[in-house]
């Protein structure tokens, strides 16, 4: 793919670091563009799935990242303008440079994203439906919240911590390895551990709270 990275950023770090930076760029740009959380999560997922298939050394990670965000906007019905994506990514990668002029470089970048989108779709075999952990997380958090003492919930930034953990989780390819329900439960578990909070009566319970969530889920699922 003709590269725009030569004057963007050199990929000389280890793949993990490059992935991390590129996904952080997706999140930063997503927030600036006021994209929906599902769209940003979708972009990160597309990004990791792409590099699961392709050799990381062959592609400009930032171009792939920008394209993932553009495609994710389409997939999640949260249309993002290609012009905004070019500008916001350019700013995120080169905070010190002036914004791009409407000149050759801008048009090349724009064209590259359009071309790269087709590449992405083909590599992913047009399979662009993803079940995100977000809705499970909110649903489970509601259940856990109802079960806990109100003063503990009021004191802790539990929801925010979970949300941050979820966002961080997308920075590495391992986010592809787990079911969305498991991710949601694990995040709540970790957040509670962080604050040293236990779920009431958990020690007396036949099933641990997180097992119940999964159990209920599977039960619903099987009966469907």
């Amino acid at each position: 793919m003709a590269s725009l990275s030569s004057n963007w950023v050199r990929n000389d770090s280890s793949p993990r670091v490059v992935d991390f930076k590129a996904v952080r760029c997706i999140f930063e740009s997503g927030i600036k563009l006021e994209a929906k959380p599902q769209a940003v999560a979708m972009a990160a997922t597309l990004y990791h799935r792409f590099f699961e298939e392709c050799n990381p050394e062959d592609y400009d990670h930032y171009l792939i990242a920008a394209t993932c965000l553009y495609l994710a906007g389409k997939v999640e019905e949260n249309h993002l303008k290609i012009r905004d994506i070019v500008n916001v990514f350019h700013k995120a990668i080169h905070p010190k440079l002036e914004p791009l002029d409407l000149a050759e470089e801008y048009w090349l970048l724009r064209d590259s994203i359009v071309q790269c989108e087709l590449l992405l779709l083909r590599v992913l075999k047009f399979q662009v439906s993803v079940d995100h952990p977000h809705r499970y997380l909110l649903h489970y958090l509601k259940s856990v919240q109802d079960w806990m003492a109100p003063d503990i919930i009021a004191k802790l930034p539990l929801f925010r911590t979970c949300w941050s953990l979820l966002c961080d989780f997308y920075h590495l390819p391992s986010c592809l390895c787990y079911k969305p329900q498991h991710v949601a439960v694990a995040i709540i578990y970790l957040a509670l551990e962080c604050y040293g909070v236990t779920v009431p009566y958990n020690s007396d319970a036949v099933l641990q709270w997180h097992e119940v969530n999964i159990y209920v889920f599977y039960h619903n699922f099987i009966s469907m």
Binding site: Y70, L71, R110, I113, L118, L121
Partner: peptide, 19 residues
């Protein structure tokens, strides 16, 4: 509309038909 890349209508159709 090749400036906007792969048409969102086609993408919707593919996503929906896969589902």
């Amino acid at each position: 509309n090749e400036k906007e890349g792969f048409p969102i209508t086609a993408l919707r159709e593919i996503k929906i038909l896969q589902l």
